[in-house]
Amino acid sequence: MRTKLFNPFIFLAGGKALALGLAGMVMAALLGFFGRSHFNGVLDFHKFRDVLPLYISFTEQAIIFLCLVVPFYAAGRIFSRSQIRLVDVAGTLALARWPMILTAMTGFGLPADIRGLADITAGVIVLALVGFVFVIWMVALSYNAFSVSCNIKGSKAVSIFIVCLLIAEISAFYCCSQLYPHS
């Protein structure tokens, strides 16, 4: 059970994982749009005051996915001794973003505008913590996705993963910020 929750890539990768992952991203984009929340980075999730067009929610997902796949695939090509496939790296990383659907659901319960401490209720704190747990789950899944698809293990895998995740986060955050006219 633990393996299936944290490392389903032992059983599922390639084209099937990519299709499932893309479906998950579409769901996360739609839930985000209807809940007025946005994924403006690989690890970022924020509730917006304004309603933005639907295409922005989808563009965010596309940007995040590209910003993830490019550094991880490049790192795999450089550091792995195996013949890695782009479809495995892209597929497993896409599938690893499934917890974002659950994170997007928490957006429905979060207030759009927090002006002071009075707006931070116990419910908001609980939802934020639940959302945070899903983000941690996604990071654990992403690590296993990278490790399995690129056949890199141990401390080498951890250090490469951290560097690639930082590159992905910074580049996705910057690209997403260009989407919002007021930011």
Binding site: F9, I10, F11, A13, G14, A17, S82, D88, V148, N151
Partner: peptide, 13 residues
């Protein structure tokens, strides 16, 4: 084996 392609490739490596 009911495993993914990269898992089997990793086992071979």
């Amino acid at each position: 084996l009911g495993l993914s392609y990269p898992t089997v490739r990793n086992m071979l490596d």
